[in-house]
């Protein structure tokens, strides 16, 4: 596939799925501004390195991989700042647009970054376990055991369907 063609396809896919990208980013960074930064940065990287997508069928995998990596990078680099920023954060009036009750999403915080990605991709973005394995660069059995572990942490009662569900 020519580089320009793949670039165009990556661009189309981004424009088709930026809302999903945003929700994934938001689940990690938890505010609109930062989530938008992460999505913009992901779009930039996805196009810039589009040449490394070898097969058309992996374009979506590639975009999800980038957005998750960017979101995780973002929170890692802001860990310190977030801690010291708390007083200022309290003073700042919340923008009406961002007023939303995310207590339940906050429940995902007990999971580590990869586990969180697995829950988001499996249940919210309804990806197959094989796709998740490819997105996170881990093998299928690791995905399964991490999914099991994550659900346990979330105190979700396990049902067999969880593993058989094919989306």
């Amino acid at each position: 596939m020519s580089q320009n063609k793949i670039k165009q396809q990556v661009e189309d896919k981004i424009l088709e799925s930026y809302e999903s990208m945003y929700r994934i980013a938001f689940t990690y960074v938890k505010n609109a501004d930062d989530a938008m930064d992460v999505v913009q940065d992901s779009a930039y990287k996805a196009i810039k390195y589009a040449a490394s997508v070898k097969k058309e069928q992996y374009i979506e995998t590639w975009i999800y991989k980038i957005v998750i990596n960017c979101a995780i990078d973002f929170i890692k680099k802001n860990q310190k700042e977030i801690l010291t920023d708390i007083p200022e954060e309290l003073e700042r009036p919340a923008a009406p647009e961002n007023e939303q009750d995310f207590d339940t999403i906050g429940a995902l915080d007990i999971l580590n970054e990869k586990e969180r990605a697995i829950i988001i991709l499996r249940f919210f973005e309804e990806k197959k376990l094989e796709e998740i394995a490819r997105i996170l660069n881990i093998n299928l059995s690791t995905v399964k055991s991490m999914l099991y572990r994550s659900l346990k942490k979330l105190k979700v009662e396990l049902k067999k369907e969880v593993f058989n569900y094919e989306g």
Partner: peptide, 27 residues
């Protein structure tokens, strides 16, 4: 038939409002 807890979180996830200028930022 997924668990209720997950469904609850998914509802909130789906309700995450996408800002109007996101498309512009992506472009």
């Amino acid at each position: 038939m997924r668990d209720n807890r997950i469904n609850e979180i998914k509802q909130d996830y789906d309700a995450i409002a996408v800002p109007k200028n996101l498309e512009e930022r992506v472009k």
